[in-house]
């Protein structure tokens, strides 16, 4: 098997007395889409917040490119090339598309913004994703629809040539056509050699794009599956806890 880009082992996280992650293992490979599935409360969001450096893990090891790394701040994650697209689309309504895409990593010249360069890169990125719904890159985000916001959020992650992109329920709020576009985009990302972790409740989406499926159940990873060697019923079984994989982490 290939070398994983990122490898988590024994990751734990608790909020007060509530233990949310109880020693989780996870691998993501360059050029592959790893779907992370699990029921509500399984710990998916906590797991990715740790990867993003927003909410550091209490313990466990994270290896990136084979070397142990610490993720204690969003900057740690972005330095490694980890980008997260959140479910609640972390965009500033009062800023325009370019400003949102470059937030936290603006292009400057003599300490002042190079707006032309940012505008160019932003519209190039959107164009490379075949975005057809956005009228102007200088539109305020408050004037965009839910699907357009999702697009901007994903484009934001793509902009800086991320090596690991984590998508949290990217299709939850989208219509049929836009879901298809986003899934195509996910596939295209992986084909470019990016490691993608896709979190989704929608198993149809998962089976459409994922190479590997990891199932989280009550804070533990109960199954690592290859998408082409498993079935929908199996995955549902693992998600609901009625099925246990031989040899998976206990």
């Amino acid at each position: 098997m290939d070398v994983p880009l990122i490898e988590l082992s024994g990751v734990v996280k608790s909020f007060g007395p509530v233990s949310v992650l109880k020693g989780v293992e996870l691998k993501a490979f360059p050029g592959k889409v790893t779907a992370l599935v699990g029921d509500n409360g399984a710990g998916k969001s906590t797991l990715i917040k740790g990867l993003a450096g927003v909410q550091p893990y209490d313990g466990g090891e994270v290896r990136f490119d084979g070397a142990p790394v610490s993720l204690h701040h969003p900057r740690d994650a972005s330095r490694l090339g980890i980008e997260v697209v959140y479910q609640d689309l972390a965009l500033c309504d009062n800023l325009d598309i370019v400003q949102n895409m470059f937030l936290g990593r603006e292009e400057t010249e003599f300490g002042t913004f190079d707006e032309g360069l940012m505008e160019k890169e932003a519209s190039d990125t959107l164009r490379s994703l075949s975005v057809r719904t956005v009228k102007s890159v200088r539109q305020k985000v408050s004037s965009l629809s839910g699907g357009q916001r999702q697009t901007v959020a994903i484009a934001r992650a793509v902009l800086k040539k991320a090596r690991l992109v984590i998508l949290d329920e990217p299709t939850a709020a989208l219509g049929v056509a836009q879901t298809e576009q986003v899934l195509n985009l996910v596939r295209r990302l992986a084909d470019q050699g990016v490691a993608v972790i896709l979190i989704s409740h929608n198993l149809a989406d998962v089976f459409e794009v994922a190479d590997h499926i990891d199932v989280l159940y009550l804070g533990q990873m109960v199954a690592h599956l290859d998408a082409d060697q498993t079935s929908r019923d199996d995955v549902v079984g693992y998600i609901t806890g009625t099925k246990v994989q031989q040899g998976a982490s206990a």
Binding site: V54, R75, S78, L91, C92, N94, L103, G104, R105
Partner: peptide, 13 residues
């Protein structure tokens, strides 16, 4: 950015 969405700003580093 913080005035618009402080959490988004924080997540952006």
């Amino acid at each position: 950015a913080i005035g618009g969405n402080a959490e988004a700003a924080r997540r952006s580093g």
